Simulated assay, not measured.
Amino acid sequence: MTLLKTLSFATLALAFAAAPAISADASPVGTWQQTTGESRYQVAMCGDGTQLCATLVWLREDARTAENLRYLNKTVVQARPSAVNKWRGTVQYEGQAINGSVTLVDGNTLKVNGCQFIACQSFELKRV
């Protein structure tokens, strides 16, 4: 059993060592684009200055559906800090306020996750 614990710890330590480090003071503030290129978001710190808010500011022509246009220039993410470079809150998706999270993966990548019941969606944003 001790050997198994040692191997597990060593594997975990190696995984953390291999993961890219991101500074605790890295900032998600700025303009971000979905990797598919269909939408852009302005991310800012809001509320007491630790909360994260994202506003849909641009839609590619083929993404300008009636549903998507309802959210243009509206805040679609509101979240509170839950860990270093991670926020939890609500994500507006298809007319629903869904529980979700935003993680600053690195200086140029944000990952957004949202789940309702057992159905989950996630997408990445790249800094513009």
Rank of each mutant, 00 (worst) to 15 (best):
Q96N: 10
T75S: 08
V91H: 07
A44S: 14
W32N: 08
A63M: 08
A44F: 03
L125N: 02
M45S: 12
A119C: 04
A119D: 06
G95P: 06
L72T: 09
E67M: 09
A66E: 11
L56H: 08
K126E: 15
L3F: 09
R80A: 15
K5S: 12
L56I: 11
T35W: 01
D106C: 05
N99I: 02
A19T: 09
E124P: 00
N73C: 03
S82R: 06
G47E: 05
M1P: 08
C120R: 11
C120F: 10
T90N: 03
Q96F: 13
L7D: 04
E61Q: 12
A10H: 08
S8Q: 14
N99P: 08
Q116A: 12
D25E: 12
T103C: 00
K126R: 15
L52V: 04
C53S: 14
L4H: 13
G30D: 03
Q33P: 00
D62K: 06
I118V: 12
N68R: 06
V102G: 01
L56D: 01
Q96E: 12
V105G: 06
N108Y: 05
W32H: 05
I98Q: 13
E124K: 02
S82I: 10
C120L: 09
G30P: 01
Q34C: 07
D25S: 14
T2K: 11
T103L: 00
A63F: 12
E67G: 06
T11P: 01
Q34W: 05
A44D: 13
W87H: 13
N113Y: 07
C46V: 10
